[in-house]
Nucleic acid binder design. Structure first.
Lengths: 338, 338
DNA sequence: ATGAAAGCGCTAACAA
DNA sequence: TTGTTAGCGCTTTCAT
């Protein structure tokens, strides 16, 4: 246990000044080939690596991005986390992850925590903001990007899929496929994803001269989605929907299970189910769920791009709301009619 | 954007020395009620919070735990990540997450990265170590705990479930339930979890006077598990297994899908399927998978406990291999016979 | 291109 | 209990 090699020790061994060592490890700095070589040799010999914390302190840049995420049980966020990690790492940043329950209090707590680490930027995934939180970031001078949520707070940049358009796609697909009793199972009512998907769905139904047959709330939770499904199907057959649009895949799986195993109904022969996200299990044989794809790769790329733009040019501050279109992926869960 | 309040500014406003401010924010330090009150008032007024990076530099403790994880697509690890995050946070630590492919190179790269952050400890989940990596940690004086892998390298502490015992439970259950043509689909051959589960399974079969009917490898990947399943069932009925033990749930789902949707066989009437982990989808209706539970909560608790023991008393270094027993959870995927 | 020196924000002796 | 002082390991002027 004798690490903690400092730039001084390297300098001494290489016969140069400590600042020379620093320069060798600072990308843009001016050093001669010769010094650089000597320093690198010495550094290798001693196993020297710069202390990022010390560097962060003096430079004011930690190269850490804080990521706050609420629903890790939803596989979409796992995927996103992985991609975010890769995207940032590729640019020399690392992510400090904070997991919270999505309530005001925890988010504010965690916000304080995260700022203590002098992060260079923050990504909030599926978190619902208060303007208070936003101003905390702003006061601290830390750029913030909202992922998969959009919010009407002053100038907050957000990246989402085009949820309204997605809801519309589901509606027109189901209507054209011949379904007539269309139900909707909502996510958390305050989430923009929930609101937009429902809005798109309803307005497209209206455009086709139809309207919602039933509506329940699942709150983005497996358990509550099951409850919602039961309320929908605890009815004599004529009062049951023939198609259910569920606000995300995670809930849709639970809904399908209830429909098939508690009510003995067939999907899609008796009732079609459509989700949103296209998480991995959606393509698994047991569910084969029709769903709207959220293009995680693109969304993550845009997130990184937006965040680095803010980091690099804090003054040219223009909030953007980027919406990324995603295809409807038709699978067996809705292939009955037509 | 006028944060970056320092302890000096607080000190000035409170009319005390800067060290007094420091003490107020240092749990064990000695300060009078009076000073503390003045300082807190000033701190609140200015919105002061200590800079953890600066604190880390001088104290040599970053209060950051590095977590390296490879298979996030396996839901077991998402659960673990969440619980780890909570467990460490509760003790005032945070986790810096690194995601890698599980190969020698990426792990070594990431190891360098992680040490640069002066982490106080490292948890490696489902990562396969080289002794080189271990000595890097040791040289840096950073405690290391292996999660869900155990390895025969000098004194490395590891936390796993009792995989041998788990494999045994599956074998005796299936044999007693009347299954006779027992196949095994392996995970990544070098993983200790894979080896132990298989070993337990086989030795218990032997004890019952039976032996493995067939064996294929799925390498802990969905795709390869599908291939393995096909190789198992691309046979005339008499040559097909009547029960398949799959090395983890993640693969078991893929295997069930192939069995049911590609071969039109019924689970469990035609073939029983058993997995390992008890991840959330295992209890979902569509799979209802019999599996061995890994007690994530307990495993995480032990991990934290072991790591903090090493952090607090580095000298009393005794490597432990903690194994946690988990129950066999019998569900519909194996309830045919008996 | 290089070295000397200042200082990032904090903790930890040491004195008082 | 409190203030003073010396760094933690590094980047960054500023001379040279």
């Amino acid at each position: 246990m004798y690490d903690k090699v400092t730039s001084h020790q390297v300098a001494e061994l290489a016969g140069v000044s400590q600042s020379a060592v620093s320069r060798v490890f600072t990308p843009g700095a001016s050093v001669s080939k010769k010094t650089a070589a000597k320093v690198r040799a010495a550094a290798d010999e001693l196993g020297y690596r710069p202390n990022v914390l010390a560097r962060a302190m003096v430079s004011g840049k930690s190269r850490i991005i804080g990521v706050i995420v609420a629903y890790l049980e939803n596989q979409f966020y796992t995927e996103v986390l992985e991609k975010l990690s890769r995207a940032f790492k590729q640019r020399g940043y690392h992510i400090l992850i904070f997991m919270v329950k999505n309530d005001r209090e925890s988010v504010e707590d965690v916000m304080a925590d995260i700022l203590d680490y002098q992060v260079d930027g923050i990504v909030m995934a599926s978190i619902d903001l208060t303007s208070d939180i936003v101003s905390r970031c702003r006061n601290a001078g830390v750029p913030l990007v909202l992922f998969n949520r959009s919010q009407d707070i002053e100038g907050v940049t957000s990246i989402t899929s085009d949820n309204i358009r997605g809801g519309e796609k589901v509606a027109s697909y189901l209507v054209e496929a011949g379904y007539r009793k269309l139900a909707y199972i909502a996510g958390w009512e305050k989430a923009s994803t929930q609101r937009d998907r429902e809005q798109g769905f309803r307005q497209e139904l209206t455009r086709h001269g139809h309207q919602l047959f039933a509506r329940e709330t699942g709150n983005f939770s497996t358990q509550q989605a099951q409850g919602a499904a039961r309320r929908l199907f605890d009815n004599p057959a004529p009062n049951r929907p023939d198609a259910v649009f569920v606000a995300n895949d995670h809930m849709a799986f639970a809904v399908m299970d209830v429909i098939r195993f508690e009510y003995g109904l067939r999907v899609p022969e008796d009732v079609a189910v459509v989700g949103y996200d296209d998480v991995p299990p959606a393509s698994w044989g047991a569910y084969s769920l029709t769903t709207v794809r959220q293009r995680a790769n693109l969304m993550v790329e845009e997130t990184a791009k937006a965040l680095f733009a803010m980091i690099d040019h804090p003054e040219e501050f223009t909030a953007k709301h980027i919406k990324i279109d995603g295809d409807l992926i038709v699978r067996r869960s809705s292939r009955a009619l037509r």
